[in-house]
Design a binder for these strands. Structure first.
Lengths: 289, 289
DNA sequence: GGTTGTGAACATATTCACAGCA
DNA sequence: TGCTGTGAATATGTTCACAACC
């Protein structure tokens, strides 16, 4: 590795669990708040509460980073902030580009927390020639034609896609060809990318659909059984779920990807097929409006 | 349940795994696209490719819903669209309110995919009196004072919070008190809510930090070892991760939650504490710039 | 032949509960 | 005494591989 250390120093070391990585930013945020209030130390219990997880999980998470606490006392806030920042790679500067400057792209560009934590918006890019040169968040929008040059000149390795769904795949290909290896995708599409490129997606409609699922359960159970509610609720900052994505769709294409069509109950063949289904004979009365 | 069926019809039935629920919207999106192209049936292999997952996982997921496929043939597209929609509760109408109409809130209000799938924006709410009455996405913004009335009059059970971090907790409390039981939170804060209320969060900065973590790994490995890259990449639509959240911060407060402070390496006490750390003696050369 | 549906094996994540240390 | 760090137990999720069936 970079330091010339032997591989896998001792027992486990390599590979912090993905679920833990996903929670580190949460801890970091809580710790930063404590740091600003000049709190010197926290217990796992307190910090866990602030981050919305339980303390055993937090201690386990930290144990993957090392033994940074003091038994009987707790964790040194400043020190932990530094260790987590380092682990997350936030002690260095990450230039990012945002592609697709519609409502959402502009919202992202204006997002303050962006700059605060190692990320720097290096450029705003849009395909609309009319946008070129217009300032958004105090920065001129540049045209897609210059995408490759911008990426290379700024050494950008992280790209944010906030274009309409239809443009996302192509944009991702250009970003990757120019050197980007991590993408945060807000467009409601599955991007297919080569091995070695990381993609995370944020999808509004998926999140809403997941909420609707649980809402429906609550309503159903409430009517008949009782409170089997505390299903996915309970631990807010939980582990599971993927992410929900939104899209600049509205600002780009008419209404986005694929609205119209379907949703009518399968009258003809559907009904036929339905017969053989009935896994638990569950065909309830939810008839579509 | 709604139909008066006996509880737990047969073997398992109740409780579709959370990970499966989180993928259903993905399948639904892919199926809707097929439906629009009038494709009558798909194999698990094809559909899995379109949704960015592997076919075994998809089949397992569907098996929790019932036996909706035909061996040797595949799945009937229309029928599956209906079944998944029903399972997710999308055959009914879900009025939602968006609170916090800054850049992000406006982007969400304009998002077309919103309306298409059972969700309907019932109202836009903002605390700024100057916003009141102004049309956003063809709908007048209403003032926070009327929040409770709006929720009740429209029977809203899902709320979207796109306010600055500082306002989020209070907004969530008002929403919940008025009857909302599911919240999609875009503010970078941990909401604490009573049991029975579902919260999902979308957090831009968390997502970026997760990407940075993997970027850092790539760089480190690449320099010395080689390609141990295909770490979190590989299956794009993977399972793990939480979500990343963004905030309307910029439009509301100055720069959001907690930017400044910390990030300097722990010179004094930090170094001292550092000694006892060295879990795997991993202290690499990543010295902050 | 082709494809689903699923038990069994494996992998990852969470929680418990307590020894070890300040 | 108080709190961390962690093995062991449990729960959840993924993948394999193949029997069942069209």
């Amino acid at each position: 590795m970079a330091t010339g250390r032997t591989h896998r120093p001792a027992t486990r070391s390599r590979g912090i669990p993905e679920a833990t990585v996903a929670r580190l930013p949460l801890y970091l945020r809580a710790l930063t708040a404590l740091s600003e209030r000049s709190v010197p130390t926290v217990s796992s219990e307190e910090l866990a509460a602030a981050a919305g997880v339980n303390s055993a999980k937090l201690r386990k998470d930290f144990s993957y980073l090392g033994s940074y606490g003091t038994r009987g006392v707790g964790y040194d806030v400043e020190y932990l902030v530094y260790q987590i920042s380092r682990e997350l790679g936030l002690t260095q500067d990450w230039p990012v580009v945002i592609v697709g400057i519609g409502n959402l792209g502009a919202a992202l560009a204006n997002y303050g927390g962006f700059a605060s934590r190692g990320f720097r918006v290096a450029a705003l890019i849009d395909a609309d020639p009319a946008m070129a040169g217009k300032p958004v968040a105090g920065m001129p929008v540049q045209h897609t034609d210059d995408l490759e040059k911008i990426i290379e000149d700024n050494g950008v390795s992280i790209g944010v896609i906030a274009t309409p769904a239809g443009a996302a795949q192509q944009v991702s290909e250009r970003l990757i060809a120019a050197g980007v290896t991590s993408i945060l995708n807000f467009a409601p599409t599955v991007l297919s990318v080569p091995e070695g490129v990381d993609v995370r997606k944020v999808d509004l409609s998926i999140e809403l659909q997941i909420l609707a699922f649980h809402e429906q359960r609550k309503a159903g159970e409430g009517a008949a059984a009782a409170s089997a509610v505390a299903d996915s609720a309970g631990d807010v900052g939980g582990a599971g779920g993927v992410a929900a994505a939104d899209d600049e769709a509205a600002a780009g294409v008419g209404t986005g990807a694929a609205p119209a069509a379907a949703l009518v109950p399968p009258a003809g063949r559907g009904a036929a097929a339905a017969r053989k289904g009935g896994p638990d004979g569950d065909v309830p009365a939810v008839m579509p409006a």
